[in-house]
């Protein structure tokens, strides 16, 4: 008996995020060459690669901070249509404030370091139009609580907090409006191991409880392995391999991925 090969698709939902054929050059440096990526609702996509591989550039594009030379970006959300790279500055800002959350490796990029921690989170709510002081305070506190930030430090400015706590404030700000997409750029790099485990655990819990779609960029394979469902391996601005996380780690196909996986401690 010959078995037919055309299997039906089981998951028929559309990907939440689709980046198609994106290329970007800075002068003579090609940061991204024809890169495509997609993430399904509730999925965690991990992007790994060495410094300069283009992974952070790609993440910044997903946060609409950068515009590629060519390529498109769509999010399958109500009232969000067309290529998001075509949006003007105001529309981008609104979309990012309300639907996309981001946590940067460097908290200085994501936070006002001298304002209170709850104020940092409230700022995100203000951008989205929330004006009641009581609601701002309640929602900001709830978001900080969900990020496991100690609530007796609500008024402390991030500059007085440890690195792990600063990441929690960023995370609270990112999830305050229940975004559809959470972008994480090396969220645990620079934190000591025990704090790293706590932050990872918080992320995993948030992902399971809220089914937020996440894209996480890291050069730390352990972090990616803990969080990601699927993994994209980047090098020199291109995607060299993509697959299920356990397949990428247990049966890497590309020479570079093998080198990367074998180099892990």
């Amino acid at each position: 008996m010959t078995l037919t090969l055309d299997a039906p698709r089981i998951v028929t939902t559309h990907p939440l995020l689709q980046v198609r054929n994106v290329s970007k050059s800075y002068g003579s440096v090609k940061a991204l060459r024809d890169v495509s990526a997609l993430a399904y609702p509730g999925e965690v996509l991990g992007i790994v690669g060495e410094s300069g591989s283009g992974k952070s550039t790609l993440l910044r594009m997903m946060n609409l901070e950068e515009t590629p030379d060519t390529g498109s970006y769509t999010l399958d959300l109500p009232d969000v249509e067309g290529n998001l790279f075509d949006l003007d500055r105001f529309a981008r800002r609104m979309l990012c404030a309300t639907r996309i959350g981001i946590v940067y490796q460097n908290p200085h990029l994501g936070l006002l370091m001298k304002h209170s921690s709850s104020g940092n989170v409230a700022e995100r709510l203000l951008v989205a139009g929330e004006r009641s002081f009581a609601t701002l305070r309640t929602k900001a506190t709830a978001a900080l609580d969900a990020s496991e930030f100690p609530l007796d430090r609500l008024d402390a400015p991030p500059i007085e907090l440890s690195g792990g706590m600063q990441q929690r404030v960023q995370l609270a700000k990112a999830i305050a409006l229940e975004p559809a997409l959470l972008l994480l750029d090396e969220p645990t790099t620079g934190l000591d191991v025990s704090v790293q485990a706590l932050v990872l655990d918080t992320l995993k819990r948030l992902q399971q409880e809220r089914r937020i779609t996440m894209v996480i960029v890291s050069h730390d394979l352990g972090v990616i392995r803990t969080l990601a469902d699927r993994v994209m391996v980047m090098r020199g601005g291109t995607v060299v391999e993509a697959g299920l996380a356990d397949q990428i780690f247990q049966d890497p196909q590309h020479a570079y991925t093998q080198q990367l996986v074998h180099a892990k401690l």
Partner: peptide, 27 residues
């Protein structure tokens, strides 16, 4: 977890038969 080199793994899922050797990652 390993990618097959060749052959067919026909799995009779609740959604109908599917070749696990070639199915999409998301499936």
């Amino acid at each position: 977890s390993y990618l097959p080199r060749g052959g067919v793994i026909r799995f009779y899922s609740d959604h109908g038969p599917i070749d696990l050797a070639r199915a999409a990652d998301i499936d």
